[in-house]
Each structure stands twice: as structure tokens, then as C-alpha cells.
């Protein structure tokens, strides 16, 4: 695991998802998948977080919350959109209170597919986000 330069801390926010992806995000942290062995911790505080795991399609009510969480995270930061709803709105796309994917509000680095996304694919998404973090950090230094 030499490729991991730092232990990323995760901030998880559930916008208007059905819970399916959220319990899978939590399942990643628990003994079967146990990402904590790589130092990945779910933190409740945006100011401690490196990666924002977000399982939403956005609506008017949660746009300010999502923006605020994103702005409070220190640079460099990466955003992982978990599940099909976070990418496009998914099965709820035609609902009147769903505005579409999370990329309408904040820039997204990694999209994780699935409804609900499986823990394996969420972990892969986070690992990809680590690469994004690293390249952002290098860009910052230059």
C-alpha cells in the first residue's frame, strides 16, 4: 500500500438519496470491508475531511448545505458521487423536486455507478479519489 501517501478522511453527506447507498457507505467502514485499515475514517467535521462522499441528487433545499460543506473543506479536496442518483438523478430523474446530478452544484472528481452502489465499487471510487487528491496537491505546490 505504498501508493497511499496519506490517510484520507471522509465526509459523508446524504442529500435526497434512498438510504441504500448510505448504508453501503457505512458498510465500507465496518468489519467486512473495513477501510479503516487503510486509515480511512468517516469524520463528521468538514474541516477535517479530504474526500466528500456524496449520495444525492440535489434539490432546492439541500443545495446550500452541499455548497457549504464543500466550501468548508480545506484544499486539496476531492468529491466522489456515489450511486446513479448522484450522477444523473437516476430513477428519480423525472421527479419534480430532483434537479439532477450533484455536478450541477459542485465539481465532481469520481462517479461511482450502481443502484445501490456496492461497497467494493465505493472503495474503488475512494482509491481513485486518492489519485485525484495527489495530483491536486502537486498542482498546488507548483
Amino acid at each position: 500500500m505504498n501508493m497511499i501517501k496519506k490517510s484520507p478522511w471522509i465526509l459523508h453527506y446524504d442529500g435526497s438519496s434512498c438510504n441504500g447507498c448510505d448504508i453501503e457507505v457505512l458498510a465500507c467502514l465496518t468489519p467486512l470491508y473495513d477501510v479503516e485499515r487503510f486509515g480511512i475514517i468517516n469524520t463528521g467535521n468538514p474541516k477535517h475531511a479530504d474526500i466528500l462522499l456524496i449520495t444525492v441528487s440535489v434539490n432546492e433545499q439541500n443545495i446550500p448545505v452541499v455548497k457549504q460543506l464543500y466550501d468548508q473543506m480545506p484544499n486539496p479536496k476531492a468529491v466522489v458521487a456515489v450511486g446513479i442518483c448522484a450522477a444523473t438523478g437516476g430513477i428519480f430523474k423525472e421527479c419534480y423536486n430532483v434537479m439532477g446530478g450533484i455536478d450541477k452544484v459542485i465539481p465532481v472528481d469520481v462517479y461511482v455507478p450502481g443502484c445501490a452502489a456496492r461497497p467494493e465499487s465505493i472503495i474503488e471510487g475512494v482509491v481513485k479519489a486518492l489519485g485525484v487528491l495527489e495530483s491536486k496537491r502537486k498542482a498546488n505546490e507548483e
Binding site: G15, S16, N59, Y96, N97
Partner: peptide, 8 residues
């Protein structure tokens, strides 16, 4: 409330 309302 209203953060998760989808209108399904």
C-alpha cells in the same frame, strides 16, 4: 424537513 423530498 425537506432535504430528502423527491416527490416520487
Amino acid at each position: 424537513i425537506g432535504f430528502v423530498h423527491r416527490g416520487l
